[in-house]
Amino acid sequence: MPDLSKYRFTSTHEWVAPTDGGVRVGISDYAQAQLGDVIFLELPEVGRTLSAGERFGVIESVKAASDLYLPVGGRVAAVNAALTESPEKINNDPYGEGWMLELADVDESAAQLLDEAAYKALTET
């Protein structure tokens, strides 16, 4: 298991973790396992400013399409372009190569985040 001590989670199964000067956002291992093989991902344009809890994209597996919600507010500084051709990275490495967005100008004021233990408790009930 990767070290998730710096990761925080939403009840809708996204994670956020600090990087140099900003944060990265993805979905949890639990979420990727529930979805199964990821086929398609729709992500926002770089430069857009979104708020915490706002829908930022769609993730689709053979089983279902699900909306993605932003854990914290911020400006989209980068999207993980590698996922367009290789969305299976989300299944294989959800906390690493499967990252989706990098945000700058992060705004946590409206964020409702869980630490690793609290998120684990949520997915085990």
């Binding site: 086929i39 398609f40 729709e42 689709e60 053979v62 399409a65 969305p87």
Partner: peptide, 11 residues
Amino acid sequence: GLGLEGRAIAR
């Protein structure tokens, strides 16, 4: 039968 461009799934 429809062949789709891209990876999004028609349902």
